[in-house]
Write a protein that binds this DNA or RNA. Structure first.
Lengths: 99, 99
DNA sequence: TTTATTAACTTTGCGTTGCAAAGTTCTTTG
DNA sequence: CAAAGAACTTTGCAACGCAAAGTTAATAAA
């Protein structure tokens, strides 16, 4: 495939994954609950999208306990951040293309 | 559903449809062949995405003959352009969100 | 020590989407 | 009449998306 859409990353074509990465671009670490409330999705849905990003090595997981409760937080890897930046660049080029 | 991704338009989560709209935002009219070569997709695939955008009244179709050959061209409707702008706005807010 | 609660998943089920490839229709050109 | 081109439509199938229900582990409450 060639053309002006070839650098758009399919991993980010989904709103939830786009949202997760956007949040993790400006916040070093964000936990599950916070992500869930920021995005307004069900926990199962969020978990599956997180897993997809994890599988691609775009995000990392940290499991700890806070107040004696399990707490899982996430951060974007350098690789993930670069992939996201490239995606945004491609998006901007696509949107602001010239005739 | 609430949250920071709620204004992302699902119609534009797909690369091909995003590409079509992007092209039609800066070009008043573009024909099938040109779109196909710009996007680098198969004709069947392009046709199906065009149909989806048409169904939403985001684009209009003009069928004519050029050099005695059938020529179909497309343009974005005002409604489609507005929907697209809103989507881009939502994208920018999402991406450039603050902590 | 059973019971409840919370966090974070995982699984299930099912409808939707995406795409290539093949088939179709119409029209022109050789 | 055969071939070619434009623009679809259909087919088939794999991948995706999501809600809802089920699971596991730890802690808290009774």
């Amino acid at each position: 495939m060639s053309g002006i859409i070839q650098h758009i990353n399919k991993a980010f074509d989904n709103r939830v994954r786009l949202g997760i990465m956007s949040v993790l671009m400006v916040n070093e670490k964000v936990d599950f609950k916070r992500l869930k409330q920021l995005l307004g999705v069900t926990d199962g849905n969020l978990a599956s999208h997180i897993k997809a990003l994890e599988k691609l090595n775009y995000i990392e997981v940290y499991k700890t306990f806070v107040d004696r409760k399990p707490n899982t937080s996430y951060s974007a890897t350098r690789f993930g951040k670069e992939a996201f930046k490239k995606h945004i660049d491609a998006l901007e080029k696509l949107i602001h293309q010239q005739k």
